[in-house]
Design a protein around this nucleic acid. Sequence first.
DNA 1: CGTACAATATATCAGACTGATATATTAAAT
DNA 2: ATTTAATATATCAGTCTGATATATTGTACG
Lengths: 178, 178
Amino acid sequence: MANEKKIDCVILGLLSHEELTGYEIKKRMDTALKYFWSASYGSIYPALNDLVNRDLATKREDSNSKRNKLIYTITENGREYLKKWLSLPVEKDELRYETLLKLFFGSEKGEEQALIHIEAFEKKIEEELPYLLYAETILNKSLNDDSAHKYYLLTVEFGIKTYQTYLEWCKEARKLLA
Amino acid sequence: MANEKKIDCVILGLLSHEELTGYEIKKRMDTALKYFWSASYGSIYPALNDLVNRDLATKREDSNSKRNKLIYTITENGREYLKKWLSLPVEKDELRYETLLKLFFGSEKGEEQALIHIEAFEKKIEEELPYLLYAETILNKSLNDDSAHKYYLLTVEFGIKTYQTYLEWCKEARKLLA
DNA sequence: CGTACAATATATCAGACTGATATATTAAAT
DNA sequence: ATTTAATATATCAGTCTGATATATTGTACG
């Protein structure tokens, strides 16, 4: 049980909330988990088949839809597997910021180019922050409706705080370069 | 020129500062770049051989040492390749925080387990922050000695600011759970 | 009413990268 | 003298990404 595939754990986590198709799983990743995790279809679909083979999830065709839709449900085994993973210590937290990499080697191209990267970074953060602030409002309102919302809010607060700090850093960075 | 292998760019970036062995490159990654990038030997050594084959770096054996040491130097082509990459817009900045993943699915195991993950995260940040603060002092002192130091400082300031914010978030998170 | 376009839905694969492992030498510690 | 830590290079199974392929359904617009 030492080396869980992360993709298995994320999928089981999402399935622990609700039944989902592979496509819907990807959507959850690109919205709710976006700020601290990501995954591609190329890992999701093979992982789903694998989870079914290991009896951690079941697959059924959607009878209500004309679409070729495959709905996945977590099994009791799957829920146990998830709980076990949640109890284990975190193996790795990792930042991979290409922006900082390009800044670190920035002397090779000079200040002008560095400023371009900082401004692009700033713009992206400014665009994404409103979604997090919106999620914060919604979650604060519905905190008592669902015990899981408290945990969502925890991650949203992390995103808001770090994004605001990023914006402060951008200002300072511009000053330092100019 | 659309899809540069990131490992090539990082290695060339480090070689643009100084001649290095594969082992030394890994060491730089694990100290100076640690807070925003990482790479394993399994990508470094093959990439080095590849860079030599593409005339972006040259390899020579160390004559001063008894060790089987291979020293790599960036070529003019390599420097141009690096500059070109630095001029291109950033493709992806990515956070992969397993801690937040386990918190997001935290309702499955409850508050006690969530607190354990938060405290482990807090401890790790508290341990690493002093190294960043030390680097900040050194770089501020030597800012005029080397034009590259300003760029290093930029990334160190990013690390300090975000780490301090992480610690603030830990406090709030504990309050929210209790 | 047709037709273009966006969204839904699943799947595969080359190539990038990690984490583990293997191997060997030299420096430091006790 | 001997163990241990640090230096140094290399390979590989397995994980994951990003691109690509394919097909269907819903929506917008004239």
